[in-house]
Computed example of a mutant assay.
Amino acid sequence: MSDFQRFLVKRVAIAAGLTLVAVSIIFFVLRLLPGSPFEALITAGNLSEAQVQEIRSMYGLDQPMWKQYVSYLKSILTFQFGYSILRSRPVWAVLEPKLINTLILLVPALVTTAVLSSLAGMYVGWNRGSKLEKLSIIVTTFLRSTPVFITAILFVILFSYTLGLVPAFGMRSVVASPDGYLDTYLSIDFLHHYVLPFTVAVLFYSGDFLLLARNGVVEKKGSEFLKLHRAKGLSELEQLARAGRNSMLPILTYFALRLGMIFQGLILLEVVFAWPGIGRALVLAIQQQDYPLVQAAVFIMALAVILANLFADVLYAYFDPTVSTSGGGAA
Rank of each mutant, 00 (worst) to 15 (best):
N215H: 06
V217P: 08
V218K: 04
E219T: 09
E219W: 11
E219Y: 07
K220S: 09
K221N: 04
K221T: 04
K221A: 05
E224Y: 13
E224H: 08
F225S: 01
F225K: 10
K227I: 13
K227V: 12
A231R: 01
A231L: 02
A231N: 06
G233I: 02
L237M: 15
E238F: 05
Q239Y: 09
L240N: 02
A241H: 10
A241D: 04
R242S: 12
G244H: 00
N246E: 05
S247G: 08
M248W: 02
M248C: 03
L249K: 02
L249M: 04
P250L: 00
P250Y: 01
P250R: 01
I251L: 00
I251V: 04
L252G: 09
T253M: 10
Y254L: 08
Y254D: 11
Y254Q: 13
F255T: 14
F255E: 08
F255K: 07
R258M: 15
R258T: 15
L259R: 02
M261D: 13
F263M: 07
F263H: 04
Q264C: 04
Q264Y: 11
G265Y: 08
L266Y: 12
L266K: 11
L266M: 13
L268C: 08
L268E: 15
L269N: 08
L269W: 10
L269R: 12
E270R: 10
V271P: 15
F273R: 12
A274F: 15
A274G: 14
A274L: 14
A274D: 13
W275K: 12
W275D: 02
G279R: 11
G279A: 03
R280Y: 15
R280E: 05
L282H: 01
L282M: 08
L282V: 06
L284Y: 14
L284V: 11
L284I: 11
I286M: 07
I286S: 05
Q287I: 13
Q287H: 13
Q287E: 07
Q288V: 10
Q288C: 09
